[in-house]
Design a protein around this nucleic acid. Structure first.
Lengths: 342, 342
DNA sequence: TTAGAATGGTGCAACGTTTGCACAATTCAA
DNA sequence: TTGAATTGTGCAAACGTTGCACCATTCTAA
């Protein structure tokens, strides 16, 4: 029913192979023929049948993306759209499509990725999360399927990945508070088994130690990436004799909870407790007060991730770990004296 | 390289056709043969090559989803993940995959959809937005490609779609405020050219009129689905002689702005101004106070949308417009007297 | 002139499936 | 006991591409 290469060939008065050559910009085609064929393609509204093409070429012009399971990393929900936009922008430019997978339980997830790989559905994959002993990473490695991970694998050093320099970012965030004159700085962290939490914790500690400030275990709370997590943390952390006067918070969503908790306890932000957080969600500028947050370049992360997969597919050399620069967006929540630069 | 139907056939001692028929559950295959073939498939880790399959069957087992352009409907960013999860859940069950498209400018978007359709890449499409004179809808209609729209088309009555009964939902939201004793109720709307805004406006008016309350044009503000939109609206709406004491807000994100604006102007929520909003984003329970919001069943919308496309593909009859029920989640922002039910 | 290269093109097999048709073997009915 | 019906399987063509081997021209240089 649809227009095929043969139809174009017939109308243009050439053989199908010639039409194919025209599309591939084969050198041994005359400018004249090329022009004529292209005109016919346009006229008939011809579009390559990708199924047929990939059958013979063994390449699908498709990249898969494995979504995090909802239970896993709530916080990704918020990046997600922005990240995808970055991925899509890059893929579209290169003529690739994006296929989604995942979003079931662990077993189903592995099954669906296996199917994508074995059935030759995708040329590469982007993973939004990984866990220790991740069978997916092992599968992809075994099958030599190009893949890029968002974040850092705790086990394998050599998994291609895009990431933030979380240690440095946390260091910078903490240093910002120190520069504001803060001396008693706490840390509201995420699940400690995640590389993300560990790295940010390390950066926080490094800044403290460089500034000669004390690290107190009681100023550190570990929670989930959940909305309530930050809220609840406040009750415990602020009830001690000498509570912190500033907090580094692992994520904006958690920071919303922190903000709410502190306000309810009667603390003023930033006069009583200053806050700096991560990810710079759109909503961070809308809270009261607006939250100072570390922008990690979510769109860039997506864009770069797909760039990497594409390079792997075309066998170009890549940097195994691509670090996207971060940038602190200073807002009211962290400023010791509210003095707008005018 | 990969395991093909021929390899399975050879090992199982049957012909490729038999293997194919086993997969299709062809009636004229003996239970014995079927069992043996399946065992071999398992053993060799065989997965059907979808490219080859769709080449002959003209079906791809893939549904496309067209993302809204960022500029278009910011508010969708927040649903997005939840909606997609619903879509994926349903598609996965049916063995379908999900392909993303869009996210460029208008022309690029049309081009990429045209390509998906003409090149036989997808069996159906889900559209997250449409506009007046949408060339995409027309294209899909012309090419007889099954599609489902999220929301309502202003022009075509017969576009299959999933939607909320926005009129009723707004009516219910407004009635909730009236039941709380509110008499001066305003409406913070979105872009007036959207069906969504119009329908919610109609529901708001209907509730007012039924309750015998006055509709005042000065109590209505029209804005964007932007974060700042609600914020700015407050300055104007509250400066009039007799400002509203309650507001129906078109969307939670806008409501965040409203909340911020009101608080800065010194109004207490809900004592001075009560608020009820739409979409029940996760963050709505985290604001201060938590916002009463209309849950529109985002996951359900996605789930139902894909269910509809699948039915269209298999030629089953469908309801052209599927309405997903809504449910008001009452929180502090709308309660006239704060009396928790204990 | 004419061998050889360059240039521009064609035809055919293959990719991994599905599927209509043919055929063989078995069972059934009369 | 024969012919028909049923059951299980194989063969080969097709799906829309690509890529290889090959064929015609035309050009170049000795």
């Amino acid at each position: 029913m649809a227009v095929t290469i043969k139809d174009v060939a017939k109308v243009a008065g050439v053989s199908p192979s010639t039409v194919s050559r025209v599309m591939a910009n084969h050198p041994r085609i005359s400018a004249e023929t090329s022009k004529r064929v292209r005109e016919v393609m346009e006229e008939l509204g011809y579009h390559q049948n990708i199924m047929a093409k990939s059958l013979v070429s063994k390449t699908t012009m498709t990249i898969g993306i494995v979504l995090p399971r909802p239970a896993d990393e709530m916080l990704l929900n918020f990046f997600f759209y922005e990240f995808i936009r970055g991925v899509l922008a890059q893929l579209t430019r290169a003529g690739y499509d994006l296929l989604m997978a995942g979003s079931g339980n662990e077993r189903e997830e592995l099954e669906s990725v296996t199917r994508l790989v074995r059935s030759g559905r995708v040329d590469g994959l982007i993973l939004l999360h990984s866990r220790v002993g991740d069978p997916i990473i092992e599968l992809l490695h075994r099958e030599k399927m190009p893949h890029v991970l968002l974040g850092r694998s705790m086990e394998y050093e050599d998994v291609p990945s895009v990431d933030t320099d979380n240690l440095q970012a946390a260091y910078d965030a903490t240093m910002h508070l120190i520069a504001q004159g803060q001396r008693r700085i706490g840390f509201v962290s995420g699940p400690s088994h995640l590389a993300l939490s560990q790295d940010r914790m390390a950066g926080y500690k490094k800044a403290l130690s460089e500034a000669g400030l004390p690290f107190k275990q009681t100023w550190v709370v570990e929670g989930e990436f959940l909305l309530e997590s930050g809220y609840r943390a406040m009750a415990s952390i602020m009830s001690q004799p000498e509570p912190p006067t500033a907090l580094v918070v692992i994520d904006d969503v958690v920071a919303f909870g922190v903000l709410k908790g502190l306000t309810e306890l009667g603390y003023r932000i930033p006069q009583d407790v200053a806050i700096v957080s991560f990810n710079n969600l759109q909503l961070s500028e809308l809270t009261m007060p607006p939250i100072t947050s570390m922008d990690i370049g979510t769109y860039q992360l997506g864009y770069t991730a797909s760039q990497m997969v594409l390079r792997m597919i075309s066998q170009e050399p890549i940097l195994t770990r691509q670090i996207i620069p971060h940038r602190l967006v200073v807002r009211e929540s962290s400023l010791q004296t509210i003095s707008p630069v005018k």
